[in-house]
Design a protein around this nucleic acid. Structure first.
Length: 419
RNA sequence: GUGGGUAUAGCUCAGUUGGUUAGAGCGUCUGGUUGUGGCCCAGAAGGUCAAGGGUUCAAGUCCCUUUACUCACCCCA
């Protein structure tokens, strides 16, 4: 048997209903905040991700689906969306059309990791990117947006963590300070942290190794060494969040894994999923556009993992979405009437009534059972003596009542069903 | 990439210290009188017990290998 690729899932029936409901909510909220949807190709030139996400990151160094196409070009299935959005922004000179561009997306991403709860190889994210403003109100808006969606879904066990990585200069300065602090402890660090010491010191904060955590406990914090401007920026973000009623905590150890972040970074975690508890994360990336060869343009964004969100909803027993019931099921008694039934079904369907009928030449009893199974609201029974009078029986399935209706006046039947 | 767990019907799972034709619930299908659902009743279909090898008179059950799934590490959304 040929099966789906590891870490890639088929969705159908009830599961799809949940996804559609989530997508609908996401769209509504993004539209309210006046974000417009952006769609970019699922694959890009490999160097786009190498340059933006960072060569040394795990994503780029070992998790990408990369292949060479027939022209010899190295292509990669996108592992995240920010790089693509910024690429499109630069390619189409969108910054020259509008000073501020606010985009959202709902799209599949690909990373070749070992699947586990809340982590797939083809996974789906919704997210937003705002390019062109360095106002802290946008940083706050991103967090509020993400929070709003999760709240409106009904999720409870959430915590919002925020931090600031400061300006690039401050970050660079802090790197030195941190290295200085770590030097005497170097030998006690875990192997991965030793590597990070050279390549990306900040990431040592992410370590779960107990000895690393012990060492990092007393490490100087980037947040404490921020300049006046960066501090004021961060304060304003926090103030806006407080006014918006978003409860958050400052987590000085929150260092995001992607190289392009500056200033605000944030994460919303849930207790209701497994180990992969981050439902969404993001931050500001003022250097990225320039880094990708565009004119310097400040940006902020976030991405949220849809599988994780739905998993959290399921674990908190939140029902997401409801399937629309069939309004009318057409039962035919005599088999010769099957085309008449088909024709009638088409009439109702064309008038916006969700209609179903038998395609399996089944008995009347079986057709009724089917109508009941799919919870059809009404059944129209076609045949017998009523049909000779150009009438049919319309049955209300919830109370079992039925009445004869004229097939010469389908408008009246429409009214009956819709009312 | 490294660990742990699991693998029996479409789904959720039983299957006793290895012992005859492998079970249940749900789901599906048919019927319980002519043209009517739900509840109930009766019946049916559906399984190379993940695959391969080994031990044994005898393996779903014990051992080995492989594969898949799953959880965790790692990383991240």
């Amino acid at each position: 048997m040929i099966k789906a690729i590891k870490g890639a899932k088929d969705l159908f029936y009830d599961e799809v209903v949940r996804w559609q409901a989530l997508e609908k909510l996401v769209r509504e909220i993004f539209e309210n905040f006046n974000y417009s949807e952006i769609r970019t190709p699922v694959f890009e030139e490999t160097r786009l991700f190498a340059r933006s996400i960072g060569e040394e990151t795990d994503i780029v160094s070992k998790e990408m689906y990369t292949f060479t196409d027939k022209s010899g070009l190295s292509i990669t299935l996108r592992p995240e969306m920010t790089a693509s959005v910024v690429r499109a922004f630069i390619e189409h000179s969108l910054g020259k059309q509008f000073n501020l561009n606010k985009f959202y997306y709902i799209a599949p991403m690909f990373r070749q990791e070992r699947p586990q709860a809340g982590r797939l190889r083809q996974f789906h994210q919704f997210g937003a990117e705002a390019l062109g403003s360095s106002s802290p109100s946008l940083d706050a808006e991103m967090i509020i947006l993400a929070y709003e969606i999760l709240k409106q879904l009904g999720l409870k066990k959430l915590s919002v963590k925020i931090n600031s990585l400061g300006s690039p200069a401050e970050r660079e300065e802090y790197r030195k300070v941190l290295r200085e602090y770590l030097k005497p402890h170097y030998d006690k660090l875990s192997e991965t942290s030793k590597v990070r010491f050279e390549k990306n010191v900040l990431r040592i904060f992410d370590s779960k190794d107990e000895r690393d955590i012990e060492i990092m406990k007393d490490a100087p914090r980037l947040l404490d060494s921020l300049g006046e401007e960066s501090s004021a920026f961060f304060e304003e973000v926090k103030e806006l969040l407080s006014k918006a009623g978003v409860e958050f905590e400052t987590d000085t150890a929150l260092v995001r894994g992607l190289d392009y972040y500056t200033h605000t970074t944030f994460e919303i975690v849930s207790e209701s999923v497994g180990a992969q508890s981050a439902l969404c994360g993001g931050g500001r990336y003022d250097l990225l556009a320039e880094q990708l060869g565009g004119t310097p343009t400040p940006g902020v964004g976030f991405a949220a993992g849809m599988e994780r969100i739905l998993l959290a909803c399921a674990n908190e027993e939140i029902e997401v979405g409801k399937k629309e019931k069939v309004k009318l099921y057409i039962v035919r008694i005599e088999k010769e009437l099957k085309n008449k039934a088909f024709e009638l079904a088409l009439f109702f369907r064309r008038h916006g009534i969700k209609t179903e009928l038998d395609y399996l030449s089944r008995s009347v009893k079986a057709q009724m059972r089917e109508a009941n199974r799919i919870e059809a609201e009404h059944v129209l029974i076609l045949g017998g003596e009523e049909f000779l009078k150009n009438e049919a029986v319309l049955k209300n399935m919830s109370d079992g009542s039925q009445k004869n209706v004229s097939l010469a006046n389908l408008e009246a039947v429409l009214k009956e069903i819709s009312g």
